[in-house]
Design a protein around this nucleic acid. Structure first.
Lengths: 197, 197, 197, 197
DNA sequence: ATCTAATCGAGACGGTACGTCTCGTCTTATG
DNA sequence: CATAAGACGAGACGTACCGTCTCGATTAGAT
């Protein structure tokens, strides 16, 4: 009995789950080591042992595959803890987000993924559904809780707060391409909350 | 006096200016009608009459060519008028920016360009140098004038204001991909200025 | 049962045999009408409907492709009949060879192919294997039969006879580039046989 | 007064002779070190310091330039000494010819030149005029002298003798591409002279 | 000795082929 | 029948050379 899970048994059929995991592993490895331009159906097929036919059957575009590989690798933290102190919670969230983009080295990955999403509808859909929109929803729920507790005015525009906070980060990451570490997160949160009335 | 500027005299050399303008015209047309993925050296050469050699000599990447074609077509408005009323000026600027991204149809173009810039350093450089950084500088100057006139506190963080205002727009355009027309520009400006103290 | 062998069904795969025959037909046509310099992978792909990828997969160089197209077109006569009269057989062979080079119009083709073979190892190999060496072997066998029947001395150097006879033709064709029709084949054979002892 | 003949004085005009010799030197060097495919107008211009304009003005094709460079480098021995012994003289000539083609390393050069001549009329003309036809004429004169001295029959076909002797060598060099060192020159000459009556 | 006309270098230009890569579709053979 | 293997048409990549051309710098020959 072989310890090797996939002895590469030629042509025939293999369990779907096994194929999927090997495909995602190969795609993730390519994404991390060479960037999104290396994530092509061609190379993933070559390096995962799967056939192109299979890849085209399961993923609508190589970008969508890259996105799924990214989420499989680094399950993004989607919790938004509520310590009761809104300002502290926002600062904690944004600080860890900025840290992810800078220190974690995920900055390049995320900007490449968002960049590719601008011309790949399937990647865009996967990104919005799996990451961007859920994250905004969590933030919105935290802000709504703050409204209920009176830390935030009842008529504050929650979407504007979210756009201001995260948009400021993305602005530097994607548009200006200036270093994110210069961003003063505490002051940013202070301004946003003060402005929200 | 010859009315015909370019009688296409076969092989030899043509004036550089003439070639450049035809190349940029072809690239701009491709960019507008088919999107950035149609802007390849191959097609630009075919449709402009220029040779690939020439294109490679003058532009470092097809993305950089697309950027230059974009700026040549729609000379982006880089003025930032000062009427004395900061809030009105910011609203005017952001409103016309949002209108450009939505009604003008430039939204898709700009998001594709920024998207491609994430993996094309030459395009990124052209975009930052020609558009993003000058625009931020103009905004910063307007805010500094407001500080001098007392409409804005002397210790306000100008970069944060800019990141909040424009970042909010880009956040919806690039990351959330939600409709920009839902963005309440007046309220956004109000929040940002109030928050800046 | 479909009567139409090739309805050009777009992108996917086509039977290899069909592709091969169309490629060789296109290459042969180019070779005959425009010479060996027109036989490029680029043009063959364009005019046969095959893709360059396919051509590079099957043929090591455009010269090798040209050689195969040549042999497919004009299956060269490689028989060497034995009527019992060596002198008559050699004269018949050389006469038809010279006729092929002059009247047949194949002279230019063959000289171009041999010419290109001097810098294209793959073409050289194809030419030697398919044509030159088999032809020499047939001639050698005919001469050996003549040795057994006593028409040729047992210690005659067969390779020298062959080099003298065919070499004389190629000398005029390739090196001197003088008209081949001035060559007196009967006298050439007479001299060679008399000289061979 | 400078001892250096060509201090590369920028753009303007240079003495024709100086340019010519540098061009031929560069072409010869390319021909010897990289083969005839490296002899392009482009590279010769780059490496000789001459401009393409100048090259196109003086040489009809790159092949013709290669031929002239070849003849300039290795002034081919065109003498055909007459010691009074025809057989010895022919053996001497052919032996040195075969040695040139094999040991001298000129075999590859000469076969490449003759090969290129099959599709380059200018190279063919230069080759015939400068080398092939004069050489044949010298051989013919030597054979005529042999006829006068009675060593060769008066009605021998001199062209056939020449075609047989040199053609045998070229046959192996160009057509069969088999090693020339296996050729028994003495026996070849014996056969040719005996056959010539 | 001065001017003028020819000639050179440098290299841009449109064209074409190279050999490689990825794409998305398709066929075949294996299990 | 789902899979692996991979052939196929399409077309972009970046490079090399072709032959034609403009341009400015230089020199040689005529004044």
């Amino acid at each position: 009995m072989s310890a090797e899970p996939s002895p590469r048994r030629g042509r025939g059929r293999r369990p779907a789950a096994e194929v999927r995991s090997e495909v995602l592993a190969a795609a993730g490895h390519l994404l991390l080591t060479e960037g999104i331009h290396a994530v092509t159906f061609e190379r993933i097929a070559r390096e995962s042992g799967a056939s192109k036919t299979t890849l085209y059957k399961w993923w609508p575009s190589s970008g969508a595959l890259a996105a799924e590989a990214f989420f499989t690798r680094s399950e993004p933290q989607l919790e938004f803890p509520d310590t009761g102190d809104l300002r502290a919670d926002l600062i904690a969230q944004l600080t860890s987000f900025v840290a992810l983009l800078t220190d974690g080295g995920a900055g390049k990955l995320i900007s490449e993924l968002i960049g590719a999403a601008q011309t790949d509808p399937d990647l865009a859909e996967a990104w919005s559904r799996t990451y961007a929109l859920p994250r905004r929803e969590l933030a919105r729920e935290r802000l709504q809780a703050a409204q209920r507790s009176g830390q935030l005015g009842a008529d504050a525009d929650l979407d504007i707060i979210i756009d201001q906070l995260w948009g400021a980060c993305y602005h530097r990451l994607l548009v200006l391409r200036t270093p994110l570490k210069d961003l003063d997160v505490e002051r940013l949160v202070t301004c946003a909350l003060r402005g929200a009335q």
